[in-house]
């Protein structure tokens, strides 16, 4: 910081004092600037999170004013003793519906994010090529991203309609299916309907992040590969893919965290369908629909822990630098 080069010791000290004073002033200003933001984040993130975790250990119900006694881990797991050695485990961790929700969420996340990564990579490769109208295609793929999730759910709900849906019409015309399918209500296809919409809506995000990674690649590698006569497919797998791996990793993390908490799409597209109840849907049902605020809070806490755990694991395993310090 201090770069006074004067040979006079006195002047040097003076400069140094002035400089530290300036720095101190600057740091004080920095904290003043940061305070409003920190206060808002404490109010909307830290405090509500703490309260949610707290409620998970109580018997709070919205219909019972003043309820909220501490009951320990009973919402999570509790041995209900019938006496005489008889009894059963109750609580979220003993609830098959919860485990079904966990399974649904993980299934959805793995399948949807995998498809999105592959499609995103293809779209990014296409957009990375030179062709007339590239700007148009890039704008076109931004459309699904910009459309509100609720609207895309409704649009697809209509296209997937069992009687009047265009997708059944199209698939039957092509000969893919012989009879109309009730995509969103049939247990076999409900999850795939959700995946279909999610892939449509979020592949653009994936593609744009991967494209940004591609555009940072140095062009001379490709020149060299071309001169050496390396096959383009080989170039892709040996050069491009390893180099854009960090960009893909970041995109996958973002998408995974998003998928693990999916709520709106399922709430609108396949309501009340056991096949597609995810952890967020399960938690909200208990919080507000089943009048089981504490139980729902406990489920929310579990989801929070799962997401936090996944993030840490992924960052650790992928050595992805998210801290932003250069």
């Amino acid at each position: 910081m201090v770069t006074a080069t004067s040979s006079l010791p006195q002047a040097e000290t003076k400069a140094a004092t002035k400089s530290t004073q300036l720095t101190r002033e600057k740091i004080r200003a920095a904290w003043i600037f940061l305070t409003p933001m920190i206060l808002v984040l404490l109010a909307v993130a830290a405090w509500p999170l703490i309260r949610t975790i707290w409620f998970g250990f109580t018997d709070a119900r919205l219909s019972v004013p003043g309820s909220g006694e501490w009951i320990g881990f009973e919402n999570y797991l509790y041995w209900l003793d019938y006496g005489g050695g008889d009894g059963e485990w109750i609580g979220i961790l003993a609830d098959p519906t919860w485990w079904r929700a966990v399974y649904n969420t993980v299934y959805f996340t793995v399948i949807a994010v995998s498809i999105e990564t592959v499609l995103g990579l293809i779209v990014a490769l296409v957009l990375n090529a030179q062709f007339a109208g590239r700007g148009f295609v890039r704008a076109a793929i931004l459309v699904p991203w910009a459309i509100p999730t609720i609207v895309s759910a409704k649009m697809w709900d209509w296209m997937l309609n069992d009687q009047f849906g265009i997708l059944n019409d199209l698939f039957m015309m092509v000969g893919l299916i012989s009879a109309p399918i009730a995509w969103t209500s049939s247990p076999d296809t409900a999850m795939w309907a959700v995946i279909m919409v999610d892939v449509w809506k979020t592949t653009p995000f994936m593609a744009l992040l991967i494209l940004a990674g591609m555009q940072m690649l140095p062009g001379d590698i490709y020149e060299a590969a071309k001169v050496d006569g390396v096959h383009p497919v080989k170039v892709f797998f040996k050069v491009t893919l390893p180099l854009i791996k960090p960009a893909i990793m970041v995109a996958v993390i973002f998408r995974m965290l998003d998928s693990l908490r999916i709520f709106d799409l399922i709430y609108v597209l396949t309501p009340n369908n056991v096949q597609t109840v995810t952890m967020s849907v399960y938690a909200r049902q208990h919080l507000f629909d089943f009048d089981n605020f504490a139980y729902g809070s406990a489920a929310s806490t579990l989801l929070f822990l799962i997401i936090a755990g996944t993030t840490i694991l992924y960052i650790y395993a992928g050595r992805v630098n998210l801290s932003g310090d250069k």
């Binding site: 949610t52 967020s280 938690a283 919080l287 929310s300 989801l303 929070f304």
Partner: peptide, 29 residues
């Protein structure tokens, strides 16, 4: 300043919060 890295990291973590995790607490508030 001291704690800048930690603060940035915390801000980034908040952006990854599942909304449902704060729903109950925010509802009370």
């Amino acid at each position: 300043f001291k704690g800048r890295g930690a603060l940035l990291f915390t801000i980034l973590s908040v952006s990854m919060f599942p909304q449902i995790a704060v729903l109950a607490g925010l509802f009370e508030m």
